[in-house]
Design a protein around this nucleic acid. Structure first.
Lengths: 312, 312
DNA sequence: CGTCGGCCACAACCATCGGTTGTGCTCGTA
DNA sequence: TACGAGCACAACCGATGGTTGTGGCCGACG
């Protein structure tokens, strides 16, 4: 199906006749006739009843019309999403179901009129490069991993400390606990496939391991969170970490447990990053929204790597 | 823009390489390459970075991908809206902003999983024919105008009595009233352009005029409710009737008044009509919903034409 | 370090599609 | 009854989008 044909249908429906629609679209009446005929052939229904002074919608045509309009609207937004200059605010998050995505959902609820696009980049290195090039407008990341100070033209503000939770299957030794201390985790195998050395999140877990003597295994390829959850659910000796704000599509019948971690609670520090000179009007709105809704983060009883900066 | 190309983009993005996408789409790799190149040329941005073992999305590609998926979803629904058999429930209402449309909005809120299409037919004659032919599944209409008994195979149930309200401009003689009686309306000019003789709604107003000696002028072409409202707002001698459940996009600064009518309150009787043998599963859901949410209509103090049937 | 294999892009070729012009038909109207 | 408005059909033709064939690039592996 061609969107030009859909547009022709909408224009013809509004005009009530093919002739006028043809003029509006700068084609001949015969072209409009052929397009509509092709659309009707594709759909297998008649969309217009041709009369001596025009064409009016059939019932099927009436039913199709709002869908056709919606189709054109969505297409317009799709094109706008990649249009340089005045495109939707484009924000990088670390995981589509993580805390940053939750913040963006909240922002969308507060400002549904602002067009958003959410992307997921590889690491903070990539994100900073994308911010500087203008490919994205903002990023939620942990800053700044050791030896990776932010460039001068990148600003950041810490917006959310997300507590880590332990995820276990029903047969795990800690499955029955209401909460566990970090000290209790020593000796247990924590499995986090897909950790890539050199990224800022790998640095986070490296620090966590060094600080508390944990055992985190990053072995094996990452087949996605569904496969991870399946394995954890079925393997008594394995547990994994998960952001406490993560929205899970909970696999039913697996008996998975999410257990808070305490003494201290490891938190993953999300900062918003953006370019000093970015002129996108929605960026200021996003920053104001985050500042207004930020839960003043209480550092007592929590742990984050020493290299994390709190603001600048 | 061609939806085949959009689909190619989505498949290629999922596959991570053109080769596999080509196999899935049953075309050659070269065709996929050309399609993607054409899409990139149209959009003016690069969507994939080509590597030695595949193609991965650029940031623009990532931003475009969800919009592309949405586009395909909407297209799917558009096609489904006219597919014979298992198409969305198609309901005829008398006006897009009237009471019946409000009932359908309520039904949608209660059952968002049910696909709906709303159409507006000319009169009950057309609606009954459409119901019998299967072109629509249900209709909200006043039944049955004099001499027009419903056919045997059409069932109906009265679902809503909508009180009429008087709509006046700020300079109208009755503009200051909190409510008006029908008797007070005698002698005032009530303008309702667009009434077509022979329709069931024309019969309703005919009866209203005959019963209470009102003056309803149907003169002049109907340029739409916006033009009607403009005229009423500016003309002190004119008022019009409007369904009390009508949702207006209120023209600002016009000072329009909606005034309830009493002694008695004329109500427009909406019934749901459907075909006895219609097998659409959602039709039963709609009937159950309407039965459950129906405000038990209290006939005291209201007026409706004598030919209106209350149920069957 | 060279070779191999996988994958994408370019070129040439060709059928189909979608546009135009020209014309005929129907229907409402003067 | 003749006319005009509007849509459909036919013939024609350039553009589009597919195929096959081929070459270049890059990572893997011996």
């Amino acid at each position: 199906m061609d969107l030009d044909i859909v547009r022709t249908f909408v224009v013809a429906a509004d005009a009530g006749q093919f002739q006028e629609a043809a003029a509006e679209l700068a084609v001949t009446q015969q072209a409009v006739s052929k397009r509509i005929a092709a659309l009707e052939r594709n759909l297998g229904v008649r969309l217009f009843t041709r009369t001596a002074r025009g064409a009016e919608l059939t019932i099927d045509g009436q039913a199709f019309l709002p869908h056709a309009r919606e189709l054109l609207r969505v297409a317009e937004r799709a094109v706008a999403s990649v249009r340089p200059g005045r495109r939707p605010l484009r924000v990088d998050v670390i995981a589509s179901r993580g805390a940053a995505a939750g913040l963006m959902r909240g922002f969308y609820r507060a400002h549904p009129e602002i067009d958003l696009d959410v992307v997921m980049l590889f690491d903070i290195e990539t994100a900073v490069a994308a911010i500087r090039s203008g490919a994205i407008d903002a990023s939620f990341r942990a800053v700044a991993a050791p030896g990776r100070p932010l460039p001068e033209d990148i600003e950041s503000v810490r917006v959310l400390d997300e507590p880590l939770e332990l995820l276990t299957g029903p047969a795990h030794a800690l499955a029955g606990a209401r909460s566990v201390t970090v000290a209790q985790l020593a000796g247990h195998r924590i499995w986090m496939p897909g950790i890539v050395p050199g990224t800022e999140w790998a640095a986070y877990y490296d620090d966590l391991v060094a600080e508390f003597g944990l055992t985190i295994e990053a072995t094996g390829p990452n087949f996605g969170s569904d496969a991870l959850l399946d394995t954890v659910a079925d393997t008594p000796a394995l547990a994994t970490f998960m952001g406490g704000h993560t929205r899970l599509v909970w696999p039913s019948g697996h008996g998975l447990r999410r257990i808070p971690v305490t003494d201290p609670t490891p938190v993953y520090p999300h900062s918003l990053l953006w370019h000093r000179d970015n002129p996108h009007p929605a960026l200021g709105t996003l920053r104001a929204h985050l500042a207004a809704t930020a839960t003043g983060h209480d550092a007592t009883g929590t742990w984050a790597p020493s290299w994390v900066i709190s603001s600048r």
